[in-house]
């Protein structure tokens, strides 16, 4: 599976490398578009010292971890949310006649190096934010754990978005509300949002475990919503559960697949 993925990704990279200038411009473009979110944070902190009880380096830390996870998931699997376009064009049928999982084929289709622009941007933010926070070594181990679990959670969200498109072939934009909406949500400390929304992203669609709950542990911050302390270590559990649910949803969607035409 990994071998097939790597092989297909490499082939797409070579195909893209035929237009090096275009590829470079697109990478820079992705870098700048994702930097806009960061500029928004910077402008907000021009007017205030704290947002929702968090300082600029703390918000940058939350932003950086969430965006590293999101851009890794997007780079590796984000393309599964293009499912409806493939269904309508009939190219999904072509994937089904190959002896390789259609999920892998979807994920890697048009594997594009320009999505690295977003990842680089996120890593830079994290590298700037971390030294300013003086995180003790007894807590810093959580950072790679949360980035990994966050990547799994976002991958699961992309997969759910793809699975949803087996049903809503005409309205793929609905998936964006969850994928890109999830990305927008986790860029800020959840303390700015309403209690109901936070309960929803903790217990229903567990985006709070991408960076918020483990981030509270790393930053040594009180939970403004007073949820149990052990939730800070529950990211692997949330990732596992959501991953399993999304895999089931994808399978169910594939079984219901109706192809195009008659």
């Amino acid at each position: 599976m990994v071998r097939t993925y790597t092989l297909l990704a490499w082939t797409w990279l070579r195909a893209g490398a035929q237009y090096p200038l275009s590829m470079a411009l697109l990478t820079i473009g992705t870098f700048v578009v994702s930097a806009l979110d960061l500029i928004a944070i910077w402008i907000i902190f021009e007017h205030t010292g704290t947002l929702g009880g968090f300082t600029l380096p703390e918000v940058m830390f939350l932003y950086g971890t969430a965006m590293v996870s999101f851009s890794l998931a997007d780079l590796l699997f984000g393309n599964v949310d293009k499912l409806s376009a493939h269904v309508r064009a009939g190219t999904f049928d072509s994937m089904l006649i190959r002896p390789v999982s259609p999920f892998v084929q979807m994920a890697v289709d048009r594997f594009a190096v320009q999505r690295l622009g977003k990842l680089v941007q996120a890593v830079v933010v994290l590298v700037i934010a971390l030294p300013q926070l003086d995180v003790p070594s007894s807590r810093v181990w959580m950072v790679p754990v949360m980035v990994f679990c966050g990547t799994v959670i976002f991958t699961a969200v992309f997969t759910l978005g793809g699975a949803l498109q087996f049903l809503l072939t005409d309205a793929p934009e609905v998936a964006n509300a969850f994928t890109y909406g999830g990305s927008a949500l986790t860029q800020y400390p959840l303390s700015v949002y309403g209690t109901d929304l936070v309960r929803g992203v903790t217990f229903v669609l567990p985006l709070a475990f991408v960076n918020w709950q483990p981030g509270l542990f790393v930053l040594g911050h009180e939970d403004p919503f007073g949820l149990p302390y052990w939730l800070r270590f529950a990211a692997p559990l949330a990732a596992l559960l959501l991953g399993a649910i999304s895999a089931l949803a994808w399978r169910a969607g594939l079984r219901r697949y109706r192809s195009t035409g008659s």
Partner: peptide, 18 residues
């Protein structure tokens, strides 16, 4: 997927190539 290795499929209306 096992079947895919034993059959060949061609759609005239659209290509299965990349």
């Amino acid at each position: 997927t096992a079947l895919a290795r034993r059959i060949g499929v061609v759609f005239g209306q659209r290509t299965t190539l990349w």
